[in-house]
Design a protein around this nucleic acid. Structure first.
Lengths: 339, 339
DNA sequence: GCATGGCACTCGCCGACCCGGAGTGCTAAT
DNA sequence: ATTAGCACTCCGGGTCGGCGAGTGCCATGC
């Protein structure tokens, strides 16, 4: 018995099942793939694969269906990554390049990926904590309110309103603005605390409280992991016809509406920016996602990813194609943000 | 024959059908409602109602189901608005009051409404064109780029990057910022063009090109109807079990993913801010929404609404409850924005 | 003239039944 | 180790009948 052939059989089963959505039997397997052996032989291999937990049969005498473990093996052994066609690449590049600002870039990316994979796409905004700051702006609003606008080098803009106890002294704002910007410009969040503390010392004692409050807001805003934003598109693909998946659609939609769940999905994956991570079925923590797989990778930043992007679909999805699409969009997205 | 009773019958049919989701027959009708007549009498009325197009029977001998026209009549005659319970009101108020910024307010509103109605909720961001400007900020980025940040009195923030041909003269930015703000502060978009033109004249000729470009960006940004933003929540409610609606779910999800469709949905409704508008089934232009109804109203602004908020569900929805919820959320939302 | 009771009729739904086909596992032979 | 043959299982689809809900109509009563 050849282990090699068994893996071939597994691969063939996955491929056929993904395509037809129906349990695949030994006969059609030899017909559609050049396996060079008879159905009976395949049956023996299938029995072994089932014993090992890679495939299962829904009913006593139906064909076989891959299990999560089977998909896992399939994905791990997946060597052939189909590259996208070059018109496809150009289309992606062009579409992303037309974006006018960060919101637009992210929006286009998520729609694009959803379109390419015909699945749900998820994109995380470039992380604030890992971005560098480009500019801080202070805008007095009325007497006792101060609007703090934070602009990062990825083009992300965050705003916070600050309620003050006492009216703002006129002279403080311009000075604070100048010093703040001098202190933070070009720095990443991680490197911020000390320069900011230093800067605060430069003010006269009576202005300190205000300065400290502003500093705190800036730090809080940048630190809030909660503020990580995630956008999603293509939910309608979940309702693709001809699949019992439509029974499962409710919990999936519910999961996808929870920012928290989306975020965990994206961040619980391996930290290396190079590779593409695949989570299959029950490997996802969330119960509602037990029948879905998620393919994700990082984008932006060198070495350490700025944020992540991924595609979610039924476990019976086209893994090779999805991986290729996710990787491609991530690459062009990184390029846009860097340029 | 009493027309009054016929309307009662129609009302009873709608109420029962909304509750049970099943065609309602003459017998159960007299059992569950105190109509004071026999099933046979009801049958006559039903025949008349069917003749008039208010109800229909799915199969020759099944109960009756309201048509779009029937729902329309029902809604138009709907006098009893059930007010929300006072704990409910308090909960709404509290939940919205906890919001930290505009994004948060809108986000909370849409989730809240979705929760209350157990349907899809849609909220439009306060319109830029109708908002007043609070502040304009100019941030030079590098030598040839200028970031324009626009802040409205509703707390909305828009940003645009401007690519310039020539490096920016240092002295221009502060002056421009000051004059711009003097020109626009507190004004609504509609009233902007002249003051801006006037202001541009105050600059020496060589700075005019830059000034004009900035002015143009501001006007364009505020004018772009495209930039109207709409957020949606509660898509999972579409997949509520026990309804053939799950067959129709795909086109609905597709429609809801199109910002354009959402916007049309919200803006094609009557312009009066006071009332709640209801669109039933085919009254919605979009084909995918033929089996849904949409309940919406305006919020913010006095007299003329700043933006709109609404709830979308199957035509067989609880109109009275939905109308009450939409109205309640809109009211509190307006209050928050005004305060 | 409207309401009502009675009655025949129409269908849709459900369970029973049956059959064909696909697929398997096993065994014996190569 | 592979393969052909074969008996067995079981799902899916199709047919059939009976049941029940509901209707429309007619004759009757107030």
């Amino acid at each position: 018995m050849s282990d090699d052939r068994r893996l071939d059989v597994l691969r063939a089963i996955v491929e056929d099942y993904v395509q037809t959505q129906e349990p695949v039997g030994s006969r059609v397997l030899v017909e559609r793939h050049a396996l060079g052996v008879s159905p009976a032989t395949i049956r023996n291999d299938m029995a072994a694969l089932e014993e090992a937990g890679f495939i299962a049969q829904p009913h006593t005498s139906a064909g076989r269906v891959p299990t999560d473990k089977g998909y896992r093996m399939f994905v791990d052994r997946l060597s052939t990554i189909k590259p996208l066609s070059s018109p496809e690449r150009r289309a992606i590049q062009q579409f992303l390049a037309d974006a006018v600002d960060l919101d637009d870039v992210v929006d286009r990316s998520v729609r694009l990926l959803s379109q390419l994979t015909q699945q749900v796409a998820v994109v995380q905004y470039p992380s604030l904590r890992r971005s560098a700051l480009r500019h801080l702006e202070l805008v007095p609003v009325g007497d006792t309110r101060l609007l703090v606008v934070i602009i990062t080098d990825t083009g992300r803009v965050e705003q916070r309103t600050l309620e003050l106890d006492a009216p703002i002294a006129e002279h403080v704002v311009p000075e604070l603005r100048a010093r703040l910007n001098a202190a933070v410009a070009g720095r990443r969040l991680v490197d911020l605390p000390e320069p900011l503390e230093q800067m605060a010392l430069a003010f006269v004692a009576e202005d300190r409280p205000l300065v400290h409050r502003v500093v705190r807001v800036v730090e809080d805003t940048l630190a809030e992991a909660t503020e990580e934003r995630v956008v999603m598109a293509g939910a309608s693909h979940l309702a693709r016809s001809g699949t019992d998946f439509s029974q499962t659609i409710r919990p999936v939609l519910e999961a996808l509406e929870e920012q928290v769940v989306l975020l965990r999905l994206l961040t619980e994956m391996a930290e290396d920016t190079a590779g593409v991570t695949v989570r299959i079925g029950h490997e996802n923590q969330h119960a509602g996602l037990a029948e879905t797989s998620f393919v994700a990778t990082g984008y932006g930043g060198d070495g350490e990813a700025l944020a992540r992007i991924g595609s979610l679909g039924p476990t019976r999805m086209d893994y090779a194609g999805t991986i290729a699409s996710v990787r491609a969009v991530a690459r062009y997205l990184s390029r846009i943000l860097a340029g």
